[in-house]
Write a protein that binds this DNA or RNA. Structure first.
Lengths: 350, 350
DNA sequence: GTTTACCTTGGATACGTTTTCATGCATCTC
DNA sequence: GAGATGCATGAAAACGTATCCAAGGTAAAC
């Protein structure tokens, strides 16, 4: 069974293919031909093939979406936001999961390049250097939730970290400036609020339990704690659940004197609760916990978890908007507000 | 900046484009030409354009993935499984979220058709009738997690429901047989085990809290309860969290005599816990709860939730395998085992 | 030594669309 | 009325690839 092509429509309507194409893409045509073409197209149930169009225009429509892990419900929400925007624009979304691994990310970018998908929204893992080839190839990239870390060859990491903090000077690679648009949660404000809340409860030895891509949050954490930053209380896990658990458990064991933890993601929060339970640390009596990201189960946990809520779906939606409108407007970065939701996982310092 | 094409490679290597194409697609070629072509291709950093290939072959590579809701971590796991398989095959995945809405599903199928994506793995919402056009258009469809309900015009719904129970006679539409492959969890066994466990604890009035696409689970539930099925204890929610909460709350209020609930999904379980708490019903003292799907937070909940675990990731992976191998082998349906994980949310009947 | 068979190779074609360009016709301007 | 302006229209040329086919060459078979 052959697919009906634009040629079939043209023949059936007694016009040339060019006319059909024009009518269907909103070009100019006389009212009567337009009507006839539309009628015939509808009757033949004609759907233009994206293949032909893509080849002609040398670009695939739609956008790529690169996420670290769909198991993490925050990224699930982000994805739903992107999909919602894409759907209303009628554009397809090709999805890739990087597992927070720069190599896989690079591979996926390569795949998108091969597919001529020239619009990407990504939660980046790799260096600014990693992303440079994509940009040079003409991709429109919008980062979400994070910025790519400065390239390792950068002269002053802390410098660019601090600059990145405001979210408007996104990414500087060694010398070369990327300056790509991004949609981020306001980590500076979020972390500051959380830390101030904990300090108000009397906590002094506050730990940060972080994951990949938490450079901005950690910088904000340091800033909020100035000048009493205890580097040993800043701990990192890799992307996986196991690694998160190991990091949390290790933290509690190596520093039994800590009284509060800020977990930089919901998997990390989960790990902290689990590790604390395993070590017979009571929340919030022995240790207070604030978790990044408000997930539905935070309320079901016992005690219910105090969280920093981020608008995951909005982040996705806005990012998709940016990447779609990039042709017309030059996109500017967006900073979305966070909110501290106080539940029951923080108490006064013992 | 122009993209390097196969023509450039051919010229640089001093051969015809056909030869380059053959070398790169694994066709036959003499060792020396093969080597030269590969060297030149590597040096020019040539990547074949998927656009040209797709148009020529009149099909887009990769596969479509249609899920109800990425916010639900079960579907997140399923997606990760699909992505893992797709990645190892080097194939792109285009994602769509149906929101458990048949209309959106149909729209997304249309989009895939337009993109000439001829392989789809779907958690279906729409009728068998909905899927018929896709099949007729030559799509290779593999269902995951669910089967499409029988078309409304079917003469005997219960008949096809029962047949569908074994998971090997997937889908029957009115008269026309779909008979599409699917990867499913063994709901019959899962539900039976759960119900027997609850009955063993003395429960008699057991409710089922269901969602869209739970036909098979409900059928299994009825079967396990035979002959004492109380239809009022079978309640359905739509896909959303709000709807799940409303259904759970309504169930508890309308039937205060029930002593156990089987929640057919993790959002439904969440809703049940929340609703019970709101109504001052203690779990498991006042009401026992078994939740479908083992999510990480089930352990964090208080009490920890007894669950029926499904291998979400495996389901996705196997489905992707099936849809990719469909060309060579005619795919057969797969039934994966479930496991009852006993934690603390079930107690003896009061 | 001749025929046969096989392997390698490159030219040409087709995939379905958009877009450029030239043509024809009608309307407007002076 | 002659020229200019505008619009609708269709033929044709890309876009980058895979594949068909014919041609050439080499090795095997007799």
């Amino acid at each position: 069974m052959k697919r009906t092509t634009i040629k079939d429509v043209a023949e059936a309507a007694g016009v040339g293919v060019a006319t059909v194409s024009r009518v269907l893409s909103g070009g100019s045509a006389s009212p009567q031909t337009r009507e006839r073409v539309l009628a015939v197209a509808a009757q033949l149930d004609y759907r233009p093939s994206a293949l032909g169009r893509n080849l002609r225009q040398r670009r695939t429509g739609g956008m790529g979406l690169l996420l670290p892990d769909l198991t993490d419900s925050f990224y699930g929400r982000l994805a739903e936001g992107v999909l919602a925007c894409a759907r209303s624009a009628g554009e397809p979304v090709v999805l890739g999961s990087t597992g927070d691994d720069p190599e896989q990310e690079a591979e996926l970018v390569g795949m998108l390049l091969e597919q001529s998908v020239d619009r990407v929204i990504a939660v980046p893992v790799g260096d600014a250097d990693t992303w440079d080839p994509a940009i040079r190839a003409g991709m429109t990239v919008v980062f979400a939730d994070r910025l790519p870390p400065a390239a390792p060859s950068a002269t002053s990491t802390s410098q660019s970290d601090l600059e990145a903090l405001d979210g408007l000077r996104p990414a500087r690679a060694a010398g070369r400036r990327l300056d790509l648009p991004a949609v981020l949660a306001d980590d500076r404000s979020g972390v500051r609020t959380a830390v101030q809340y904990l300090r108000g409860l009397g906590h002094r030895r506050i730990a940060y339990l972080g994951g990949p891509g938490h450079a901005r949050r950690v910088a904000a954490f340091r800033e909020a704690l100035e000048p009493h930053v205890d580097e040993d209380l800043i701990v990192f896990a890799r992307g996986s659940r196991d690694s998160a658990y190991a990091a949390a458990s290790g933290l509690f064991q190596s520093r039994p004197d800590l009284t509060a933890v800020l977990a930089g993601g919901n998997m990390l929060g989960e790990a902290a609760v689990l590790a604390a339970r395993e070590l017979d640390l009571r929340i919030p009596r022995d240790v207070s916990l604030i978790m990044y990201d408000d997930v539905p189960w935070a309320e079901l946990c016992s005690p219910p978890l105090t969280v920093i809520a981020q608008p995951g779906q909005d982040i996705g939606y806005r990012a998709a908007e940016l990447v779609l409108r990039a042709e017309s407007r030059r996109p500017r970065s967006v900073l979305l507000p966070t909110e501290l939701i106080v539940r029951g996982s923080c108490g006064p310092r013992r």
